[in-house]
Amino acid sequence: MRQLALSLAPQPLPSLGNFVPGRNAELLAMLSALAAGDRSERMVYIWGGHGCGKTHLLQAMRSAFSARDVPVAQLDGAMVLADVPPPEVVLADDVEQLDEQSQERLFNVYNAQRDGGGVLIAAGAVPSARLPLREDLMTRLGWGLAYEVHGLSDDEKMAAMTEHARARGFNLGREVIEYLFRRQARDLPALLGLLEALDRYSLENKRAITIPLVRELLSDADG
């Protein structure tokens, strides 16, 4: 596809407001209260499969805390959080991927946050009891609140796509969404990425997003 000369609207950043809750309404309400300053629950573990929204929620929480000038840092994969002591809020994504050194650091961060009044929100692919981590860390992650992040139904994904399109300033007809669902993997991040490509392609060609335009784009991609 040709590159647009005009600048494009930026992709909306993950926020609590643009997270489609589906069956996660209780989790979203708890995180919203935590972001607003409620400290009745400070240790939280969320888990779920690929594409369920865990990383979206962690990124949204980071933005929410930063907007209130609350010190926040993130630990993910094999990255070791260097701050000692940790900031008021620590977010840890993909904890099942932590190497031995990072597990030691997260164990110490957990204890520091628990004893010092800080917040720790961790996320993983499986329930805490099934994490491939050292036992003392696995146990601690199970002490606080734990929520499964439920993936969205097809109808909820369609609603998310409609809202994503609206946030970028274009309308997406139901027939286009259903066409995409019949021909693409129903992974929401992948579908939203496809919407980004459709938006660019439609602007480049100065045409509305219709099924014929989608066919053209997918044909170009396949070719």
Rank of each mutant, 00 (worst) to 15 (best):
A36W: 07
A25P: 04
P14W: 00
C52T: 15
A5K: 13
N18C: 03
E100S: 12
A208R: 14
R166T: 08
I46Y: 07
F107S: 05
L81V: 09
A5Y: 08
I209C: 08
Y179K: 10
L91H: 04
R68L: 10
A160T: 01
R200S: 03
K54R: 15
Q97N: 12
D69P: 02
G48H: 07
Q11K: 14
I177N: 05
L57T: 03
N108D: 11
L98M: 15
E41F: 14
R174M: 10
I177K: 08
E88K: 12
V80D: 06
V90W: 04
N108E: 11
V119N: 03
M30T: 13
L81P: 02
L195G: 00
P12F: 00
T139V: 11
P189I: 06
S63V: 05
A36Q: 13
E216P: 03
A60V: 05
T162D: 03
Y201V: 00
E26Q: 12
L192Q: 02
S66T: 15
L28D: 04
Q103L: 12
L58N: 08
H164P: 01
Y147P: 03
V119W: 04
L81R: 05
A159P: 04
I209W: 00
E178I: 05
F170G: 01
D187G: 08
P189E: 07
A185F: 09
A197Q: 13
A92Q: 09
L6M: 07
Q97K: 14
E163P: 01
Q101V: 15
D154Y: 03
V149N: 01
V84L: 11
C52N: 06
L81S: 08
G173K: 03
A64E: 06
A9W: 04
L98Q: 05
V90G: 02
L145N: 10
A64H: 04
